[in-house]
Amino acid sequence: MRLAVVAGPPSAGKTAVVRQTIRSLRDRHRIAYLKIDVVRAFEDEEIAAEFGIPARKVCSGDLCPDHAGVMVMRDAIAWAGEEGADLLLVESAGLCLRCSPYTTQALGIVVLSAVSGTNTPLKMAAMLALADIAVVTRIDLVSQAEKEVFRERIREVNPDLDIVETNAVQGTGMRYLLRAIEDCPPITDPGTIVLRGAPPLGVCTVCIGKTEIGWQHHFGVVRRLEDADYLFRGD
């Protein structure tokens, strides 16, 4: 089975990319879909109804959704296997731009919108740095010069990133993403899959429901404002 992890900011067009992928590949592959979200999600029901493929969701509730994704990924691979799928598409909640939920033995797809502003690729650097392929959506809304400037910003973060420009609603340009998915080697051993990098997935005191502001009220990773430009860089 092949695994593809789709991440990207909210409203970037992740689900539109997933839909086009399923539409184009369902004749050749048996596809399963998992949506990870926070409070509510409807994509699984919509996709199951539209394409008749196995689809499910997990809502992370008070937990970081990418953390939730990491927790359930192994079960999801087993579930997709039981469903007879040879391709599992996992779509992230797309909340934290710092998160980079890609794993080994999978294709990491980052989706970002061409109309999201020139600095967006820099802000979501971690998500771009560890991905294999960037899908730039809403490309029909920008002119040639803007496309190239946006592409240059992506390359500043990750010069080797494969870039696919698409109008995901129409499906233009998707052929290169489809090829990348089909060329991605299948999972060899789910037991050895690891995250590509260390995203800030620590279950933090805010995540588990403490509402007080100020480091004095929290435990785990605590820093004063004066101590660092970055509050935490991983240990």
Binding site: G117, V142, A145, E152, R153
Partner: peptide, 23 residues
Amino acid sequence: ITQNTRCLADLTVEEFLAMHVRS
């Protein structure tokens, strides 16, 4: 050149063109 007449790049004209020239 699309119908969309709003450029969304958060740059000055000179920076925008210089970035395109560089790319």
